[in-house]
Design a protein around this nucleic acid. Sequence first.
DNA 1: CCGCATCCCACTGGATACTG
DNA 2: CAGTATCCAGTGGGATGCGG
Lengths: 110, 110
Amino acid sequence: MNKIDLDDCPIALAQKILGGKWALRILYNLSTGILRFGELNRQMPELTQATLTKELRRLESFQLINRKVYPEVPPRVEYSLAEMGLKLLPVLRELEIWGDEYKKNTLNNN
Amino acid sequence: MNKIDLDDCPIALAQKILGGKWALRILYNLSTGILRFGELNRQMPELTQATLTKELRRLESFQLINRKVYPEVPPRVEYSLAEMGLKLLPVLRELEIWGDEYKKNTLNNN
DNA sequence: CCGCATCCCACTGGATACTG
DNA sequence: CAGTATCCAGTGGGATGCGG
């Protein structure tokens, strides 16, 4: 039933995958390079481990990020952008520009 | 408390404003030009009048779209992109490209 | 250190009916 | 035609505690 949307509208697909509250933030953080779980969490202290884990798994299932586990003790897990995640960089850049501009334009209004 | 995010991270701001389930779809439809309420609704039959109204009001409050009411009978209301909405066009274009690409790359995998 | 399981709440957004 | 009003369900995401 929602296959119709996804076929017709790439934006609907994008919204479905990138929607959520954290997806873009996570990808944005990863755009600077590989990060470990704890590092990601420290850059976004507002979300809990549980939520971060869920989001990472979701993004992984959509093949936007890679998850590399090192069989060590203590464990180490590194996240990085996968191919489709890398292709999202132009979007993130434009979005960043827009967000900055928006803040400037609404400083006096809000 | 979330002012911290908004100051630090333009992406968080963008996600807050553009999040939702329909924001990007609506803006995407309006990117082709001015549309009346009914036309918008026809292009997205999956959402109800009530939901569409709410989203339009929200986007208007963020100054992404303009709402022009014609004092006629039957009433006519036209929606168009406002300044900050127009500045979102590059994002929408990149997102569209990405969505199309994503579909291609996942045809055999899904 | 990294993450899973469980529980739970708030809020988004949908259904439906009515109106100028 | 373009809404409002009301009510309600689903789910996204947070809190907490345990485990390898």
